[in-house]
């Protein structure tokens, strides 16, 4: 195997190997496939915390204080911070690390910045793979900071055991969160910057929103996929100050409680199944898109079909069906 040297070093918990493998899976999807194929059996030990919230709500600062608290418990911690790639230049400024600088020189803290490279949903394509690498690297806890653009950053729900959403007093971000479907995926609401005042008002706002949501949930039980994990969990709410660390003891208890809840109710296996399903779906989308693209640019029949659609003797749906048939034929040949 091409990467066996790096993978062996990863299994021996070598930091550089972990870092280099993350670079690999970021840059090369074929490499990612080989790497995950070799390490998958070693994954499943880390607890994964997802942190989301609008830009400036204090996610990175909050994570920094979380690191401090978990270090005190003797944990080895991996942090993945995802930031947006500019759709125009393709470049990205990754500025989350700067808030965690007191931990740069510690052996049991590994921080990695990642650009989302245009992927929607709040994560990068490679985030899921990077989580697995850090898991094998021996992190007890992996914290993921999603892209904070305040849109539908709900993908973290598929990767994390516990999803924490940060809100701040004053902003209309609770309403935004509802619109973006964030309410449904949240396990713990954190009202950050409690020192600014208005935090209690925000807490009341969220309780109100949650009551609305509970009713909504009751009426739409058949649409239950997304609720599988939270069915019996009422989201916790806490106000904190991420700079002073005030109320983090309460927060840690909540995280603990949620972890116990997942394990004791057996919901964790439900959650793992859903995770495997959605991850496979994601991979299939990539693979099939690639297959279709290859076909569209290489098969001569396609031009004929396009002409037919132009002449209106074929419509785009029918053309799509023909292409699906062609993919089927290709598949049989492959095997």
């Amino acid at each position: 195997m091409q990467y066996s040297d790096l993978i062996n070093k990863l299994i021996q918990k070598e930091t550089r190997a972990a870092a280099r493998l993350i670079t690999l899976v970021e840059n090369d999807i074929n490499a990612a496939e080989q790497v995950i194929n070799s390490i998958y059996k070693y994954t499943g030990n880390a607890y994964i915390l997802g942190i989301t919230g609008a830009p400036g709500t204090g996610k990175s600062t909050f994570i920094s204080t979380l690191i401090k608290n978990f270090l005190e418990k003797g944990k080895k911690i991996g942090i993945i911070c995802v930031d947006p790639t500019s759709p125009i230049t393709g470049g990205a400024l990754l500025g989350d690390r700067i808030r965690m600088k007191q931990y740069f020189s510690l052996d049991n803290v590994f921080i990695r910045s990642m650009a989302n490279r245009g992927q929607l949903g709040g994560l990068a394509r490679a985030t899921e793979d990077a989580i697995k690498i850090l898991d094998v690297y021996g992190c007890d806890l992996i914290i993921v900071e999603t892209v904070g653009v305040g849109q539908s950053e709900v993908d973290i729900f598929k990767s994390a055991h516990t999803v924490i959403v940060l809100l701040v007093p004053g902003l209309g971000d609770a309403i935004q969160a509802i619109k973006a479907g964030i309410m449904e995926i949240t396990d713990i609401f954190v009202i950050n910057k409690m020192d600014l005042g208005g935090a209690d008002k925000k807490v009341a706002e969220i309780i109100q929103m949650l009551e609305l949501k509970m009713n909504y949930k009751y009426e739409s039980q058949e649409n239950s996929e997304i609720y599988a994990k939270i069915e019996q969990w009422t989201p916790e709410i806490v106000k904190v100050n991420s700079i002073t660390g005030e109320n983090f003891n309460i927060l840690l208890d909540m995280i603990n409680k949620h972890e116990k809840f997942l394990k004791n109710t057996g919901i964790i296996s439900n959650y793992l199944k859903n995770r495997i399903k959605s991850e496979t779906m994601q991979i299939l989308k990539h693979k099939l898109t690639k297959k279709v693209e290859d076909l569209l640019y290489s098969n001569k029949n396609i031009e004929n079909y396009i002409d037919k659609v132009m002449e209106k003797s074929l419509d785009p749906y029918s053309m799509a069906n023909l292409i699906i048939e062609m993919l089927g034929i290709e598949k049989k040949r492959d095997f």
């Binding site: 790639t85 500019s86 230049t89 393709g90 470049g91 990205a92 400024l93 990754l94 500025g95 690390r97 700067i98 600088k101 740069f104 910045s113 650009a115």
Partner: peptide, 13 residues
């Protein structure tokens, strides 16, 4: 400037 040139840039403070 590096970001605008299409690079992924980490600034560490």
């Amino acid at each position: 400037a590096l970001r605008d040139a299409g690079m992924e840039v980490i600034y560490t403070g």
